[in-house]
């Protein structure tokens, strides 16, 4: 699972921190930090966190495609 937060939109309500403290946390009073690639065991908590966000700042995704390594291209 990948997590991306729009920190312009975030207003530090902290609901995600309550829902998944292993993934989201405050630094200082209002600065949110988070793990973009949380451990699989926290996925349900992260989903609850995204739903709990009052300003809908959290985007979750599960991209399944691998991005090819450098020089493995071949489009020409």
């Amino acid at each position: 699972m990948h997590v991306v937060i729009d920190l312009n939109r975030c207003q530090s309500y902290g609901q995600c921190v309550y829902a998944a403290p292993e993934v989201f946390r405050f630094r200082g009073g209002e600065s949110l930090e988070y793990d973009h690639v949380p451990d699989a065991r926290y996925e349900q908590a992260v989903e609850r966190a995204a739903l709990a966000c009052p300003v809908r700042a959290i985007t979750l995704g599960r991209p399944s495609e691998a991005v090819p390594a450098p020089a493995a291209g071949g489009v020409r």
Partner: peptide, 12 residues
């Protein structure tokens, strides 16, 4: 940063 599959070709 990726949150979706793109069916893209990548030249990195």
């Amino acid at each position: 940063l990726r949150t979706s599959d793109l069916a893209a070709r990548w030249l990195l």
